[in-house]
């Protein structure tokens, strides 16, 4: 018995029974070979008839076609070449293809709203072909600026990192967005804004992610506990 042990007969802090709630299964890293399960063609083999990839649109999907691309950097500025990225977004009218959307699950029937891809093994660049989402209702009577939800998995990442992608040509909507406004440090809000550009006549938004602050400060992407 060591003499520093706390008094053993204190009553429990919670004298009434807690609601029974089993803990969530703990996360583990996706590891370096996450592509085998989630993007087997990138791992180097073909196995499923129907693959889920980085093209969210078909010819019938409504909305403005955009490419979203970028790289993920670690704390040394090195691209994370084995990252796996997923996005989840509303359709062109700001509607989610899911029954929890109070307007019903049937938005654009030609748009699931979900995509996944790995970073390129040489360059680290990830790419999605999608549409620009419409604005989505927030809590209460707020409106959220158009955004993509994004999650990152990789070797060295123990729990998937959530973030959001906003668009730099939505200045007014971004200024009113509840989540962006809740980021107290204005310098960090910019880390969630993708930059619009054009390549070969196509609209390309560039969204780079920095996992870890560099000594100049303020550049680490804002990550969310959603």
């Amino acid at each position: 018995m060591n003499s520093f042990s706390p008094t053993p007969d204190l009553p429990p802090l919670t004298p009434f029974p807690m609601v029974q709630r089993r803990p969530e299964t703990p996360s583990q890293t996706g590891g370096p070979y996450v592509h085998i399960g989630l993007a087997p063609q990138q791992a180097g083999f073909d196995i499923f008839d129907n693959n889920f990839g980085n093209v969210l649109v078909s010819d019938d999907t409504r909305g403005e076609r955009i490419t979203v691309e970028g790289r993920v950097f670690d704390g040394s500025g090195t691209p994370v070449r084995d990252v796996l990225v997923e996005i989840w977004q509303a359709d062109a009218d700001g509607r989610y293809h899911h029954p929890a959307d109070p307007r019903g699950e049937r938005g654009d029937e030609f748009f699931r709203g979900w995509g996944r891809t790995g970073g390129d093994f040489d360059t680290g660049v990830y790419t999605f072909e999608t549409i620009k989402p419409g604005p989505v209702p927030g809590t209460g009577d707020t409106i959220q600026a158009p955004h993509l939800a994004m999650v990152l998995f990789a070797r060295g990442i123990n729990l998937g990192l959530h973030t959001r992608v906003y668009f730099d040509d939505e200045t007014e909507a971004n200024a009113a967005d509840p989540l962006l406004r809740s980021i107290e440090w204005e310098v960090r809000r910019n880390t969630l804004i993708a930059r619009r550009g054009t390549r070969n006549g196509k609209t390309v938004y560039t969204f780079d992610i920095r996992l870890q602050d560099t000594p100049d400060g303020g550049r680490e992407t804002v990550f969310l506990d959603i």
Binding site: T29, D74, G75, S76, T78, V80, W88, A90, Y96, H97, H98, A100, D101, R112, G113, W114, V136, P137, G138, T139, Q144, H147, A149, A154, R155, G156, I157, N158, L161, R164, P178, L179, S182, I183, R188, L211, Q212, D213, E220, T221, V222, F223, L224, D225, I226
Partner: peptide, 23 residues
């Protein structure tokens, strides 16, 4: 994990439709 972990705290927003729906 040393170079692939954020140094800043996570931000906890309220759940919206974005988080309550899924593919």
């Amino acid at each position: 994990s040393v170079l692939r972990s954020p140094r800043n705290a996570l931000l906890s927003p309220r759940n919206t439709l974005t988080e309550r729906t899924g593919p």
